[in-house]
Simulated assay, not measured.
Amino acid sequence: MKEIFIHSEYIKLDQFLKLADCISTGGMAKALLAEGQVSVNGEPEDRRGRKLYPGDRVNVVDCGEFTVSRES
């Protein structure tokens, strides 16, 4: 599982997917989510604007598993 560090209270899922190098554009995020390729904390997720907080776990098919951490 890869740890992705954020510098704010939360990060939106589409921004997170870019930071984790799973996608390169917002349009790709929309398609990935529509295809059911992303889950957050074990539950399927299709909202690009979903707020992720430190401790959340994200699984992306063919990209990997990630955990959100806050940089101190």
Rank of each mutant, 00 (worst) to 15 (best):
L19C: 08
D21C: 15
G55R: 00
L32P: 13
T25Q: 01
D14V: 03
A31S: 14
H7A: 02
S8K: 14
E45C: 14
L32C: 04
G27W: 00
N41T: 11
C22M: 14
S39F: 00
D46Q: 10
E45T: 12
C63T: 15
K2W: 11
F5C: 05
A31R: 08
M1G: 09
I23A: 01
A29F: 03
I23W: 00
E65L: 08
A20W: 04
V60K: 13
R57D: 08
S69C: 07
C22N: 13
S8G: 04
V58G: 04
D14T: 04
G55W: 03
G27K: 07
M1N: 12
S24Y: 05
K30H: 04
S72V: 11
E3I: 15
R50M: 08
I4F: 09
E3F: 14
C63A: 14
E3L: 14
S69D: 05
A34F: 05
Q37L: 12
P54M: 06
E35H: 01
D56L: 09
L19T: 11
N59W: 05
P44T: 10
V61E: 13
F66T: 10
G27H: 10
G26N: 12
V68F: 04
E3D: 03
K2R: 15
D56F: 05
Y10K: 15
V58S: 10
G42V: 10
G49Y: 02
K51T: 11
E71N: 09
E3G: 15
K51P: 09
K51H: 11
Q15F: 14
V68S: 03
L17H: 11
R70M: 15
V61R: 11
R48L: 09
V61N: 10
Y53H: 06
G55S: 06
S72P: 13
A29I: 07
S24C: 11
R57N: 13
K30E: 12
I23G: 07
S39L: 03
K30A: 00
R48V: 04
H7C: 05
S39T: 10
R48Q: 15
G55Y: 06
S8W: 08
E65K: 07
S24K: 13
T25R: 03
E43D: 05
C63E: 05
E3W: 11
G26Y: 00
M1D: 10
L13I: 00
K2P: 02
V38D: 06
T67R: 06
V58F: 07
E45Q: 13
K2H: 15
E65T: 08
K18D: 01
T25S: 06
K2E: 14
R47S: 11
G36L: 13
M1K: 08
G26A: 05
K18M: 12
V38Q: 02
S8F: 13
R47A: 00
N41H: 15
V38A: 01
F16N: 02
I6S: 04
E9Y: 07
L32F: 00
P44R: 12
V38G: 09
L32H: 08
S72T: 05
I11P: 06
F66D: 02
G49T: 04
V68A: 07
F16Q: 10
R57T: 10
R50D: 13
A20P: 13
F16R: 09
L52G: 07
L13H: 09
K18Y: 05
L13V: 02
F5H: 07
M1C: 10
L52K: 04
M28Y: 15
E3N: 07
Y53P: 00
E65H: 12
E71G: 09
